[in-house]
Computed example of a mutant assay.
Amino acid sequence: MKIAVTGGSGKLGRHVVRRLTKEGHWVLNLDRVGERSPGLVVVDLRDYGQVVDAFLGVDRRHSGFDAVVHLGAVPAPGLMSDAATFENNMLSTYNVFQAARRAGIKKVVYASSETVLGTPFDVDPPYIPVDEEYPARPETTYALVKRLEEQMAIELTRWDPELSIVGLRFSNVMDPEDYEAFPSFDADAMLRKWNLWGYIDGRDGAQAVLRALENGKPGFEAFIIASPDTVMSRSSASLAAEVYPNVKVTKDLGEHETLLSIDKARRLLGFDPEYTWRTSSPSTGTD
Rank of each mutant, 00 (worst) to 15 (best):
V51Y: 13
L45D: 07
R36A: 11
G13E: 02
P38L: 10
R36H: 14
D31T: 13
L45H: 11
L20Y: 00
D44W: 11
D47Y: 06
G39V: 10
R46C: 12
H25Y: 11
L28K: 14
L20Q: 00
L30W: 12
T21I: 00
V16M: 00
L20D: 02
R14F: 00
G7W: 00
D53Q: 15
R36E: 14
E23R: 05
L30T: 09
R14N: 08
V43C: 12
F55V: 03
H15A: 10
H25P: 03
V17Y: 01
T6H: 02
V16Q: 00
L20T: 05
L20P: 03
G8F: 04
V16W: 02
L20S: 01
R36V: 13
H15C: 01
V52I: 15
V16F: 01
G39E: 12
V43R: 08
G10P: 04
Y48V: 09
V51C: 05
V33T: 15
G13L: 02
L20N: 01
L45M: 15
W26H: 12
R19P: 02
V41G: 08
Q50E: 14
G39Q: 11
V5I: 05
R36D: 14
L30G: 01
V27N: 00
Y48K: 09
E23C: 10
L40N: 13
V51M: 11
G8S: 00
K11S: 05
N29T: 15
V27A: 06
P38G: 11
H15R: 08
G8P: 07
T21V: 04
K11F: 02
G7V: 03
L30Q: 10
E35P: 09
K22M: 05
R32K: 15
R18V: 03
D47H: 12
V17A: 03
S37C: 13
L45I: 12
G39D: 10
A54H: 11
G13W: 01
T6G: 07
G49A: 03
G49L: 06
E23T: 04
P38R: 13
V43P: 10
V51S: 05
L40C: 09
V33F: 14
K22C: 04
S37P: 11
K11D: 00
R32P: 05
D53T: 13
V5W: 04
T6N: 07
S9V: 01
